[in-house]
Design a protein around this nucleic acid. Structure first.
Length: 509
RNA sequence: GGUCCGUUCGUCUAGGGGUUAGGACGCAUCCCUUUCACGGAUGAAACACGGGUUCGAUUCCCGUACGGACUACCA
């Protein structure tokens, strides 16, 4: 039987990085086994539904390259893939369970149950308490019929039989045992006749032929209920195998990573930006922070999984080849932003200058910079070894696009000497007369110029750098000069000369 | 509180009855380079604790501690 796995997010807002990793592992497992990767939208909670969240999920998957074979927005013949579009289906299955004695109607109101929980700290609806509650197990049949006919609000609950051991063979954790006596009678069908996650996920996984359920560790405790449902439906022969993924933890402190941690630590925790109703509910993403999707994928793949070798850099295809569930770790992984940055740096370095030019273009355009391919490619060449984010090309390297806006005063004061005035003027003049304005020729010319005057190259080099970039950081001076061209280079040197005189005048050494 | 899961350098992790406990990020030092980076080299840095089992446990078992998830008519 061919492998079919699903990524089943709930459209309640932006999908954070933990969700993307779950999608990634499902994708890798499907591809590795020549199987099918399905996107199913779990929108059975109408109260928590957020408009736009579904589109966000799809766009995020597309950005990361985790393209589903079937699902909302991707076609497929096992749909519909949006649970609200399958609403009518679930009631039938829930009632089938009632008929076979595996579930029952319950008429207790949410308020009544809340009151119970208030009165009794550890109250749960289970085999011990259901006899004293209002349901089709305690009410005479005709009373139940009367209530149903009268349209009284009710739910359908799973009837958990006590005294059984439920074994789950988790692909990551091995044998996990639950005592059914400890389990509560979970709601399967809500009063609005929408299914809960528990019912919908079993019915849909069965109908969609899902073979492996790869999901977050937070689902492990309710898996026993899910097994009971497969038994109740008589679907145990085709029950999927389970694999519960370790959680992704906060960068510092305790607990799992939450959407608020992004703002709290000043790091992205979403693949792409999310625009909420309020600023507090809006978040940036890795994409907007200047990450390459391949770097994000590579980073996430290694949060909880290892390839069995010392290699660190993997393309999506290589990940597919290497992936195996056995190499997924059991314990939670702390979100390590420094490592994410390192991956991005590596991917930028590995990218071709032409590719990088393509990524720089929209950033340059947004700032009104020139965007011709030849120039952007040169910018990529000069900057790629010294940036961490794509945005650094136009931010840290702004002086390649526009005049210097700020000089490093301390360095200028340290390196400038009024006695250098005539020399600097002569240097500008010399450069202005240089016929070949390429880096190698310029370097040779300047070195000869200094040699003739018995100057130490160090001082002049720093001043040239300051003149062209305003800072001591950046590409090789003559590479910058070549890219800037003669006119711009000479102009910058003249502007800088005025500046040097100014700082030297205002601040006595 | 109950149920379940987990615990190797600061972080991500490899390993597995006898190892100098390996790699990567980060950090430090040095080299390269008259900038910043890249790159290269070196270094500091870990088996939570207590009992077993064993000739020998970081590795297997049991406890304890700590951490986490779940405990809704949310997923």
């Amino acid at each position: 039987m061919s492998v079919r796995v699903r990524f089943a997010p709930s459209p309640t807002g932006a999908l954070h990085i933990g969700g993307v990793r779950t999608a990634l592992y499902n994708y890798l497992f499907a591809r590795k086994n020549k199987g099918t990767f399905i996107l199913r939208i779990e929108d059975t909670d109408q109260n928590r539904l957020v408009p736009g969240a579904e589109d966000y999920i799809i766009e995020a998957l597309k950005w990361t390259g985790l393209i589903p074979d079937e699902g909302v927005g991707f076609g497929g013949d096992k749909g519909p893939y949006r649970q609200s579009d399958r609403k009518d289906l679930y009631k039938k299955y829930a009632e089938q369970l009632v008929e076979h004695g595996h579930a029952y109607y319950a008429f207790d109101t949410p308020e009544a149950l809340d009151a119970q929980r208030q009165a009794e700290a550890n109250f749960t609806y289970n085999h011990q308490t259901r006899d004293s509650l209002i349901n089709s197990l305690t009410l005479p049949p005709n009373a139940v019929q009367a209530k149903l006919l009268a349209g009284e609000p009710h739910v359908i609950r799973l009837k958990v039989e006590p005294g059984q051991e439920i074994h789950i063979r988790d692909l990551i954790r091995g044998d996990v045992v639950f005592q059914s006596s400890e389990l509560d009678d979970k709601v399967l069908l809500k009063a609005d006749s929408m299914p809960t996650y528990h019912l919908a996920n079993i019915v849909d996984d069965h109908l969609m032929g899902i073979t492996h359920v790869i999901r977050g560790e937070e689902w492990l405790p309710s898996t026993a209920h899910h097994v009971l449902l497969y038994r109740g439906f008589g679907w145990t022969q085709t029950m999927p195998q389970f694999a519960h993924l370790p959680l992704i933890l906060k960068p510092v402190g305790n607990g799992k990573l939450s959407k608020r941690d992004g703002a709290k630590f000043g790091i992205p925790v979403f693949p792409i930006a999310w625009q909420g109703d309020t600023p507090e509910d809006s978040f940036t993403g890795f994409r907007e922070a200047g990450f390459l999707p391949q770097a994000v994928i590579n980073f996430m793949a290694l949060m909880g999984w290892h390839p069995g070798s010392d290699d660190e850099i993997f393309s999506l295809d290589e990940l597919v080849r290497q992936f195996s569930i056995e190499h997924i770790s059991k314990s939670g992984a702390r979100f390590d932003y420094e490592k994410a940055k390192w991956f991005n740096q590596r991917y930028i370095q590995a990218a071709t200058d032409a590719e990088l030019a393509g990524h720089i273009r929209p950033l340059a355009e947004a700032r009104g910079y020139r965007t011709d391919a030849a120039f952007l490619t040169s910018v990529a060449t000069l900057m790629k070894e010294r940036v961490t984010f794509l945005s650094d090309f136009v931010e840290q390297g702004y002086f390649l696009f526009e005049p210097v806006s700020a000089y490093d005063d301390a360095m200028a004061q340290k390196k400038w000497n009024p006695a250098l005035q005539p020399v600097f003027e002569a240097l500008i003049e010399m450069l202005d007369q240089t016929p070949a304005f390429d880096a190698a020729s310029l370097e040779a010319a300047v070195k000869q110029f200094m040699q003739e005057r018995g100057l130490k190259p160090g001082d002049i080099f720093s001043l040239l750098r300051l003149s062209l970039a305003g800072t001591m950081q950046g590409p090789a001076v003559f590479d910058m000069a070549e890219l800037l061209g003669k006119a711009d280079t000479v102009l910058r040197l003249r502007t800088a000369l005025e500046y040097f005189n100014r700082v030297a005048g205002t601040t006595a050494p």
